[in-house]
């Protein structure tokens, strides 16, 4: 029996803000539950306001959970009581915009090494002075001499490779990919997707892939969850979501995607 790597159950998050003295509430995540098995690519799709970014923030301990629970490797890492110790380094994230996710004042080496300084426990002794930096920069398709340069000397695709190397330096079990190719050109997107796939098999990674790009999700994900206004409206295998969608919102989403081949088939 394959134990789930990440279990999210009954997750809720509400943001409240005041506008002209009136209190507004935004129920960003409504009772969302899903589980990710080790080694799989789990996709979360949705449009703006669907709550997918909030879920990523909750998973990364950047926001606190209102109710519900997140367990990772059998250990509760977030619930409403807080005060859980978060397994920094075991869950890593790659963000959308590689222009802003790397500190312009740091060298590539400093950027990739940064997560190592804040590890705790066994990981600290194991990885503390990691020599993996060189191996990783090569694994993501860059060269050792790139390590002493700064982000502005690289293209968008190359910066995203650096961000991926930084995420992998702590040997994470789960990598959250938050729209990792949305800011890239088509041909560069293809390179990064290929890289993500080869890294997954090389390092035995599990991915949570968050995206609005249905084409990429269809190509990359084993199972897909569809979010609409904070609710998980459908959760199924890749096959079922794209060939036999059941929820009306999923159907609408899929029919809205301007695919060049849908057009051609109809001709």
């Amino acid at each position: 029996m394959n134990q789930d790597l990440l279990v999210v159950s009954g997750l809720n998050k509400t943001f409240s803000f005041k506008n002209k003295g009136v209190k507004h509430e935004n129920h960003a995540v409504k009772d969302v539950s899903f589980a990710i098995k080790p080694g799989e690519v789990f996709g979360l799709v949705g449009e703006s306001g669907s709550g997918k970014s909030t879920i990523a923030n909750l998973l990364m301990n950047l926001e606190s959970v209102d109710s519900g629970e997140i367990t990772f490797n059998g250990v509760t890492i977030a619930d409403s009581k807080a005060q859980n110790s978060f397994p920094y380094g075991d869950i890593q994230v790659v963000f959308q915009d590689p222009r802003s996710s790397l500190d312009p004042r740091m060298t590539i080496r400093q950027i990739i090494e940064e997560p190592l300084r804040f590890l705790s426990g066994a990981k600290k002794t194991e990885l503390g002075n990691s020599s993996d930096v060189v191996r990783l920069i090569q694994a993501v398709g860059l060269r050792e001499e790139h390590l002493d340069r700064r982000p502005h000397q690289f293209s968008g695709g190359q910066r995203q490779r650096v961000a991926i190397a930084r995420a992998l330096i702590t040997r994470p079990k789960l990598v959250v990919l938050d729209e990792p190719t949305s800011a890239l050109d088509i041909s560069v997107q293809a390179q990064v997707i290929n890289l993500l796939k080869s890294l997954q098999s090389e390092f035995g990674l599990t991915y949570l892939f968050i995206s609005h790009n249905m084409g990429v999700v269809k190509y990359l994900c084993d199972r897909v969850g569809v979010l609409n206004q904070g609710e998980l409206v459908e959760l199924a295998s890749n096959e079922d979501i794209f060939n036999r969608p059941t929820h009306p919102y999923t159907k609408k989403l899929l029919s809205s995607v301007p695919s060049m081949f849908k057009e051609m088939e109809s001709q």
Binding site: L62, Y88, G89, Q96, L102, E114, A163
Partner: peptide, 21 residues
Amino acid sequence: TLYVKSARTFGVKSGWIVRRH
């Protein structure tokens, strides 16, 4: 910025973020 957000996902302390980023 995303690089500060990234740093927070590594468990970086506030003092480090202010000093280094």
